[in-house]
Nucleic acid binder design. Structure first.
Lengths: 206, 206, 206, 206
DNA sequence: TATGAATGAGCATTCATTCAT
DNA sequence: TATGAATGAATGCTCATTCAT
C-alpha cells in the first residue's frame, strides 16, 4: 500500500529533490525569489550548478516547485483539525490566533507567504497554483466544519480564512505589544463564528 | 498660502524626484523590487543612470522612498472617511469591501502591498517604515471612529484593519466568482462592528 | 618684496588652489591616483565639481599639480641643510636615517612617493617632472656639499640619494623591529660618505 | 620526480590560471592596479569576464595573486647567486648594478615594483605579503653570504638590499646618461661590502 | 565665480543557463 | 548521475567631464 519508490535510484532521486527544495526554500526565504541565486542554492546543497539543472530545468521551475511544496505543507497542517470534536475544533482554531503571531509554519502564515503572494501578482503559473491550492484548502475546511455540524460552512470558512490571512499581515505591520487585547477579541470572534447558528447579520446581532 | 517651492530649481528637482518615484513604482509593481533594474527605471524616466543616482544614492534608498510614498498614499486615502456622519461612515466602510476586490489604490490594498510585506521580512528599514505608518493610520482611524461616537474604537479599528488586510490577500487567492456571498457577509460584519455598542463576545452574540 | 598677489581676487584664487591641492593630496594618498575621484575631492574642499574644473582642466592636470607641489615640498625640505657647518651637516644627515622610518614628509619619503614613481612609469609628463625635480635637488645638494668643503660632491650626492631612496622602500618591506642595527650601520655609512676624503674604493677600504 | 599534475583537468586549470596571471600582470604594469580593468584582462586572455571570476573571486584576489607571483619571481632570481664561489658572488652582485638600470626582471626591480609598494601602503594584505616575502629573501641572502664565508651577513644583506632598492628608484628619477660614474662607485661599494671583514664604522674607514 | 544637473561609458560583479566531459 | 568550465548579458554603481544657468 502507498506509493513506494520504484527503485533505489528513484528513491535517491526523490531524496535529492527534497533536499534541493528545502535548500531553495531557505534561500528564497532569506533573500526573496529574485534575490536568491541558483548557484548559492546548489552550493548549499553540496551539488554542482549543472546538476541542479538536472532536476529543475529552470529557476522558474524551481520557484514553482517550492511554492507547490510550501502549499502542500499548508494543506497538510489542516489535517490537524480533522477528526476533532466540534468543541475541540472551536478551541483549537481559537488557539491558532495566538500561534499566527509566533510560529512561521502553519496554514495561514509562512515566511514565504508574502513572497508567494507578490509573485502571484506577476507570475500566472504561481497565481494558478495559489488559487487551486486555496480552493482545495477551503474545500477540506468546509468538510471539517460540516462534519462538526456547523451551518453554512462555506461562508464561515471564507470568514475564517479572511481573518487569519489578515492576522498574518498584521503580525508584520503591527508587532507591538498592546495587541494582546486584539488577540482576545479575535479569539472570541472565531469562537462566535464557529459556534453560532447563523453567521452574520443574524448571528452577530443581538 | 500653501507650500510654494522655495526656488525654481528646487521645484524642478522635486518634480524630477516625483517622476522617478512614479516610474520606479511602475517597474517595481511589474517586476518586483528585485526583478526591476535601475537602468530600466532610468530609461523610462528619460534620464541617464548616473543621473538617477544624483537623486537616490542607491537602489535601497529608492525602494525605501517608493515604499514611503506608497504608504503616504494609503494614509491619505483615509482622509476620505474623516468628516463623515456616523451613518455614512458605516456605509462607506461597507462599500470598501467591494472596492478592495477591484481597485488597486486604497488604504488596504495596493499592487505593491505584498511586495512591501515580503521586503519588510528581510529589510529592517522597510519593516520600521511599515510599522510606523501602520501605527499612524490606526491612530487616525481610531479618531474617526471616536468622533463618530463609536465605543472602544481601538479594538474595532484592529478588527477592521485585520479583516481588510485579509480581504486583500483573498482577492489573490480566491478570485473566483462565487465570492459575492462572502462580500455580503463581510459587509454585514463591518456594519455590525461599526454599529454595535459592544465589540465581540457581547456584541456579536445574541 | 617677493611676489605679492596682483589683486585680492588673485590671492583668493591662489588660496583656493592651495586648498584643492591639499585635499587632492589627501585623497590621492589614501586611495591612489586612480582610486580617488574628482567628486570626492571637490566635496571635501566644499566646492562643486564643476567649480573644481574651473581651476584644473582635467584630473591629469590635477595629478600633475599635486606631484609638482609634492616635489616642491621635497625640494624645500632640503633648505634645512643649507647653511649648516660641515660637521652639523654630517650629523643632521645621519639623523635623517632615523627620521625616514617614522616621518612621512621629508625629502626622501612621502606617502605619495611610490604612487608618483609608479605613475612616472606610465605617464611621461609625471616622469619628466620627476626627473627635472630630481636634477634640481641633486644640484642643490651638490652645492651644499661643496660649500661644506666636501670632495667629489656629485658622486657623494648620488650615493646618499640612492641610500635614502632605498631606505624609504625598506621602511615598507621591512618594518620589523630588529632594524635598529641596520640604522646604526647606515648612519655610520652616511657619516663616512660625508667625512672621508675619497668616496669609495679608497675611502671605504682600510 | 617533479610534480606532475594530479589530473588533466587540474593541469588545465593551473595553466589557465597562469595565463590569467600573466595577462593581468601585463595590464597592471601598463595601467596600474586601479587603472586596469577586469574586462580588459579577460578579453586579453580570450575568456569571458564571468569565467575569470571562476578562478579569481574578486579583483583584489587577482591583484594579490599577481603580487604573490611577482614576488615568487623575485625570490627565484636569488637562486642565481646560490652556489657561487665567494669571488664570483662579489662580481655577480656588482654586475647587478648595471642590470638594475636596464632589465625589468630581477630581484630588486620589476615594472610592478612601485605599484606594489604604493598598494602596500593602503592594502594591508599586500603589505603583509610584501613583508613576509622580504623576510624570506633576506634569509636566503644571508645564507648565501654566510656560505661564502662573509662576516656579519645580516647587516651586509640589509645594506645591499637598501642600496639596490635605492638604485631601482634612481633608475626612474635619474635616467640621464652621466650616471656611468655613479654605477662605478656603487659597484665598488658593493665589492667593498662583500669583501671587507668589518662592515661599517670599521671597514669603511681607513 | 560658482552651481549642480546631466551624461554615457565604464566599473566590478553576479546571473541563469549550457555543454563537453 | 555528476561536474565545473564557459558564456555573455545584466546587475548596481561610479567615473571624469560638460554645460546651462
Amino acid at each position: 500500500m502507498g506509493e513506494m519508490p520504484v527503485s533505489k535510484t528513484a528513491a535517491k532521486r526523490e531524496a535529492r529533490i527534497c533536499e534541493i527544495l528545502s535548500c531553495a526554500e531557505k534561500h528564497f526565504s532569506n533573500k526573496g525569489f529574485h534575490g536568491a541565486g541558483i548557484s548559492g542554492i546548489a552550493a548549499d546543497c553540496g551539488i554542482s550548478v549543472g546538476h541542479l539543472y538536472h532536476y529543475f530545468g529552470s529557476k522558474d521551475e524551481l520557484i514553482l516547485a517550492v511554492v507547490k511544496s510550501e502549499m502542500g505543507r499548508q494543506d497538510e497542517s489542516i489535517t490537524a483539525f480533522e477528526d476533532l470534536s466540534p468543541e475541540n475544533l472551536r478551541l483549537e482554531m481559537a488557539e491558532l490566533t495566538t500561534a499566527i503571531f509566533s510560529t512561521d509554519a502553519e496554514p495561514f502564515r509562512t515566511v514565504l507567504n508574502f513572497e508567494i503572494l507578490a509573485e502571484a501578482q506577476r507570475n500566472p503559473e504561481v497565481a494558478a497554483l495559489l488559487q487551486q491550492q486555496d480552493t482545495q484548502m477551503r474545500r477540506r475546511f468546509v468538510t471539517i466544519l460540516r462534519r462538526a455540524g456547523i451551518d453554512d460552512p462555506e461562508t464561515r470558512t471564507e470568514l475564517i480564512f479572511t481573518i487569519f490571512s489578515g492576522l498574518s499581515a498584521r503580525a508584520l505591520r503591527h508587532p507591538e505589544q498592546e495587541r494582546a487585547a486584539l488577540l482576545e477579541v479575535i479569539k472570541d470572534v472565531i469562537l462566535k463564528i464557529l459556534g453560532d447558528k447563523q453567521v452574520a447579520s443574524g448571528a452577530l446581532s443581538a
